[in-house]
Amino acid sequence: MNEHQEVETLIKNQLEQQDHTEWTGYWKEIRDSYGDYLPDSSNTSIWDVMFSFDEGIWGWVQGLIAYSMVQVTDHLHLIFWLVLLLLLSSFIHVIEQSFNSSQVASVSPLILMGLVLITITSSVQLMLEVIFESLQTTASFLNGLLPLYIASITLSGGPATSAASFPILLAMVYVITFLMKSVIIPLFIFSIFFDQLNCLSDRYSMGKVAALCRQAGLWILGVTAVTSVSILSIQTSAAAAADGVAAKSVKTLAGTMLPFVGKVVSDTADLVMTSSMLAKNMIGAAGGFILILIVLFPAIKMLVIAIMYRLAAVMMEPVAGSRLTEAVDAASKGMFHLAAALLLTSCIFFISIIVVMFISNIPIMIR
């Protein structure tokens, strides 16, 4: 226990000597925005939270559940409004059959469909605002984290690893953010739009086009994730092996060419690099943790809205018109894809940070 406290103190002292305000400020923003749903440990610094995370993991789970319930309450009006519209469509359908009025039968479904489309459009617009804000915050956070993170890798004995990983990580941030804003999200929006057109008209079927847009968006996102993480892993692994061999050679030369102090010098260098490695790992873990929180709360909000639409479609399918239920269900499908795209983007960045963190430990193991 005392040894653990000594290591913790050593890491904190080394971290406090560095300036982390460029990216730890996002932790303060998270506390200000979602402090009511975070455990008591959230009132401390990010380092204290990381060291005591295992002890308060149930508090984090409870906070996420509480936030989900609050979002359900805030958006409960959606399901009531959708159910009301679907009930009206069912009621009008009964009147149409009773009076056999073809004119009413042709006009009233279009009016109700228009109201449903207005509701869907407002929800999709809200989701787009949440997604673009989250992507912008994620990119800004990574631009603040990566320079210091790469510098800590260099101090821990990985200059080649940092030189290989830094440009790849920066390219990933800009390329993935650009693809999300310009290609992937518009494809999912087009899929929702074509699904609604498919529900409006019996003459022109747009279901295949909507499915193609969804599949194209998922394929682009998946290929981007696999390609970027693979390139990062291969490049950094080779560079980390070179760092390890170089450090091992320097240690051996120092021990043999300096007869009296060579051993002391090499052991001291190992101690300094090991403590730097622990501090570097803490920076990577804290950065990944904040990155997940930046996206997690907005994603929960989006998932709650999508679930509301899905529940409305499931509840009213037996009694409402097939077109309206299909429109609501198709909208929920597109909303789930939007939320999944945001979460997957965050996971790509998180995995990249963790991969670099573990690979940069290779030089220490080789030494």
Score class of each variant (00 low, 15 high):
Met1Asp: 12
Met1Trp: 08
His4Ala: 15
His4Trp: 08
Lys12Val: 07
Lys12Ser: 10
Gln17Glu: 12
Gln18Tyr: 09
Thr24His: 10
Gly25Thr: 15
Trp27Lys: 01
Trp27Asp: 00
Arg31Glu: 05
Tyr34Phe: 15
Gly35Arg: 02
Leu38Val: 05
Pro39Asn: 06
Asn43Met: 08
Phe51Arg: 04
Phe51Val: 10
Ser52Asp: 14
Asp54Cys: 06
Glu55Gln: 15
Glu55Lys: 15
Trp58Gln: 11
Gly63Asn: 03
Ser68Tyr: 11
Ser68Arg: 12
Met69Gly: 01
Met69Ala: 01
Ile79Lys: 03
Ile79Gln: 00
Val83Cys: 05
Val83Asp: 02
Leu84Met: 10
Leu84Gly: 07
Leu86Cys: 06
Leu86Phe: 03
Ile92Gln: 04
Val94Asp: 10
Ser101Asn: 15
Ser101Arg: 12
Ser102Ile: 11
Gln103Leu: 15
Leu110Met: 13
Met113Cys: 00
Met113Tyr: 03
Val116Lys: 03
Leu117Trp: 06
Ile120Trp: 00
Ser123Glu: 05
Leu128Met: 11
Leu128Cys: 14
Glu129Val: 11
Glu133Asp: 13
Glu133Leu: 13
Ala139Asp: 14
Ala139Tyr: 05
Ala139Thr: 13
Phe141Asp: 00
Phe141Glu: 01
Gly144Asn: 03
Pro147Ile: 09
Ser156Pro: 09
Ala160Met: 09
Ala160Arg: 12
Ala163Met: 13
Val173Gln: 06
Phe178Tyr: 12
Lys181Asn: 11
Ser182Ile: 07
Ile185Met: 06
Ile189Asn: 01
Phe190Glu: 03
Ser191Phe: 05
Phe193His: 04
Asn198Glu: 02
Ser205Asn: 13
Ser205Trp: 09
Lys208Ala: 15
Ala216Val: 08
Ile220Asn: 01
Val226Met: 02
Ser228Glu: 10
Ile234Cys: 02
Thr236Phe: 00
Ser237Met: 14
Ala238Ile: 15
Ala238Gln: 12
Val245Asp: 09
Val245Glu: 10
Ala246Lys: 10
Val250Ser: 08
Leu253Asn: 14
Ala254Ile: 10
Ala254Trp: 05
Met257Ile: 13
Pro259Gln: 09
Pro259Phe: 09
Val261Leu: 14
Asp267Gln: 08
Ala269Asn: 12
Asp270Ser: 09
Leu271Met: 10
Leu271Val: 08
Leu271Phe: 12
Leu271Lys: 04
Ser276Gln: 14
Met277Cys: 09
Met277Thr: 12
Met282Asn: 08
Met282Glu: 08
Gly284Arg: 05
Ala285Val: 07
Phe289Gln: 09
Ile290Val: 15
Leu291His: 06
Leu293His: 07
Val295Gly: 04
Leu303Arg: 05
Ile305Glu: 02
Leu311Lys: 10
Met316Gln: 02
Met316Gly: 00
Val319Cys: 01
Ala320Val: 00
Glu326Ser: 14
Ala331Arg: 00
Met335Tyr: 07
Ala339Glu: 06
Ala340Lys: 04
Leu342Cys: 04
Leu342Arg: 03
Leu342Gln: 09
Leu344Gly: 10
Thr345Trp: 09
Cys347Ala: 13
Phe350Met: 01
Ile354Pro: 00
Val356Met: 04
Phe358Ile: 11
Asn361Arg: 03
Pro363Met: 07
Met365Gln: 07
